[in-house]
């Protein structure tokens, strides 16, 4: 995986911290996840967040590590990958969560059932900064 300058790391972390607020503005996305309860680990490879989702809403988002906190699945990508993914018109190969895993810029681990059963929800959730933020590429 490629390395990332500190500024990109900071912008990506800032964007992640605001996803719960942006999700609340997206009624259709909350509705899409209405049957989803899940504790997962999302974010940059080195500085992910523990994310608690209940009925499609993020009820807690806390930077990892948290002592003995469990998670069901993890999706983590390099900071440059997030920055590319969030571009208004992302470049080929940087435009989808599974494109990032295929190219080795992201890792998907754990029990994937919640992720796969709610795949479009997670794709749209993790794309919210594309609409609301401008992370430095």
């Amino acid at each position: 995986m490629s390395s990332a300058p500190d500024a990109v790391d900071a912008a990506v972390i800032e964007a992640f911290s605001r996803i719960p607020v942006w999700l609340e503005r997206s009624e259709a996305l909350v509705a899409r996840g209405r049957y989803l309860d899940c504790d997962c680990l999302l974010g940059p490879v080195e500085q992910p967040f523990h994310v608690a989702i209940r009925s499609g809403r993020i009820v807690d988002l806390t930077p990892a590590p948290v002592l003995m906190r469990s998670w069901r699945f993890s999706y983590r990508a390099t900071s440059p990958a997030w920055a590319h993914y969030w571009q208004p018109m992302p470049r080929p190969g940087w435009h989808d969560l599974l494109a990032l895993t295929k190219r080795g810029e992201a890792v998907l681990e754990g029990d994937l059932h919640s992720f796969m059963a709610n795949l479009q929800y997670f794709k749209d959730l993790l794309a919210l900064p594309r609409q609301y933020a401008r992370a430095a590429a």
Binding site: H95, D96, L97, L98, M116, A117, L119, Q120, K123
Partner: peptide, 8 residues
């Protein structure tokens, strides 16, 4: 899941 996979 089929649609979500190919959406990318």
């Amino acid at each position: 899941v089929c649609a979500a996979l190919v959406s990318g």
